[in-house]
Amino acid sequence: MGYLSWFEEHASAHKKIVDKLLSQGKTKEKIIEYFDFDNMVKNEKDFCPLYAENRKCHDMDELNCYLCACPNFRFKDDGIQQIKDKTQYSFCSIDSKDGRQGVYGEKIHQDCSKCTVPHHRSYVEKNFDLEWKKIMKKCIL
């Protein structure tokens, strides 16, 4: 699965949950709270494959899943640029000190596994929109 297909599938799954919460009269604060990892594992098992193992994507106590992907991530499925004999497909627009460029054969991808930026509730609150795709609009190059 490429970045774009994942992006579209995830946007659809995210919208379905947000629409359900809105129909229940949930406020912004309650929607953000709903997306806390512990709640999502119990109530939205299909949202993330890691939920089946009760495993977090990042090692942090209070992980919020509203921004499952990061608004600072940039990608292009057919490649962004050639670097020597390798093709770069993604990068971090803020060059997070906790991220890195991973080389996998002839492909270069952003490795965000050590970065927790989008999973802090304060970051979600600051960047919140009911439409996940609006928050993520700069990701697609």
Rank of each mutant, 00 (worst) to 15 (best):
C68V: 11
N39R: 10
M60A: 07
V41G: 08
Y66M: 05
A52F: 14
E33I: 10
F35R: 00
V41F: 05
K28D: 02
F37M: 07
K26Y: 14
Y34L: 06
R74C: 11
H58V: 15
R74F: 11
Y51D: 03
H58M: 08
C65A: 05
C68W: 08
K45E: 13
D61S: 11
K30D: 15
K28L: 04
R74T: 15
K42I: 10
A52T: 13
A69T: 05
N72Y: 15
K30S: 09
N43I: 00
Y51M: 09
Y51I: 10
L50I: 08
H58F: 10
C48T: 13
Y66C: 03
I32V: 14
C57Y: 01
D59A: 11
L63N: 05
F35G: 00
K26I: 00
C68I: 12
N72H: 15
K28S: 02
K45H: 09
R74V: 15
P49T: 12
Y34A: 07
I32S: 02
L67I: 09
M60N: 01
L63G: 04
L67D: 01
I31K: 02
K28T: 09
E62T: 13
N54P: 05
E44N: 07
P71W: 00
N54V: 14
N39A: 00
D61N: 11
K56M: 03
N64H: 09
F37A: 04
C70Q: 04
L63A: 12
N54H: 14
K30E: 15
L50C: 10
D59P: 09
Y34R: 02
F47S: 05
F37L: 13
E29A: 13
I31G: 04
N39Y: 00
L67W: 00
V41I: 08
C48A: 12
K30G: 00
L50T: 06
E29V: 01
Y34D: 03
N39W: 00
N72G: 06
C65N: 03
I31P: 01
K42F: 08
N64Y: 08
E53M: 15
Y51W: 07
E53I: 13
I31L: 03
I32Y: 05
M60D: 02
Y34E: 09
K56S: 06
F37S: 05
N64T: 02
K26D: 11
F75E: 07
L67H: 01
L50G: 10
H58Q: 09
F37N: 04
E29C: 05
L63M: 15
K42H: 09
K30H: 05
